[in-house]
Simulated scan of single mutants.
Amino acid sequence: MLALSIYLQTLWHAGVGDWTRAHDLIQDEPGKDAALLHAYLHRVEGDQWNADYWYRKAGESRPDASLEEEWESLVGRFL
């Protein structure tokens, strides 16, 4: 059986529309990768200020892409 990383679990829940579960999984995880996913989730939520805070913590800027494109890019990154 294949175990998904916390990052892919988060993206899976986000992908099926379970924002709360996705956020609960990643919100207390350390590191830049977790901060990036946290940023994405707040972007999905529509909280751009909070999203930008988490993008900065991840050492990245908010992408100039749709949410769907960003989700696909993140899945590819964590596969």
Rank of each mutant, 00 (worst) to 15 (best):
M1T: 13
M1K: 11
M1S: 14
L2A: 08
L2T: 10
L2K: 13
A3E: 11
L4C: 10
S5D: 07
S5H: 11
I6Q: 11
Y7G: 03
Y7P: 03
L11H: 04
W12A: 11
W12M: 15
H13R: 15
A14Q: 04
A14M: 08
G15T: 08
V16W: 10
V16F: 12
V16Y: 10
G17V: 07
D18Q: 15
D18A: 09
D18I: 01
T20P: 01
H23Y: 13
H23K: 08
D24K: 14
D24Y: 11
L25S: 04
I26M: 07
I26R: 00
Q27V: 14
Q27L: 09
D28Y: 08
P30N: 12
G31Q: 08
D33S: 10
A34G: 13
A35G: 07
A35T: 08
L36H: 09
L36K: 14
L36G: 07
A39K: 00
A39H: 01
A39M: 00
Y40R: 04
H42D: 08
H42V: 06
R43N: 00
R43G: 02
V44W: 09
G46S: 00
G46Y: 00
D47V: 05
Q48D: 12
W49D: 07
W49I: 08
N50R: 10
A51M: 01
A51K: 05
Y53N: 09
W54R: 08
W54Q: 10
Y55E: 07
Y55F: 13
R56C: 10
R56A: 14
K57F: 01
A58N: 06
G59K: 05
G59I: 06
S61E: 15
P63K: 05
P63E: 07
A65Y: 02
S66V: 03
S66Y: 04
E68A: 11
E68Y: 04
E68K: 08
E68N: 05
E68W: 08
E68I: 08
E70Y: 10
E70W: 05
W71L: 13
E72C: 12
E72P: 03
L74Q: 05
L74T: 06
L74K: 00
G76V: 04
R77S: 02
F78C: 04
F78R: 03
L79E: 12
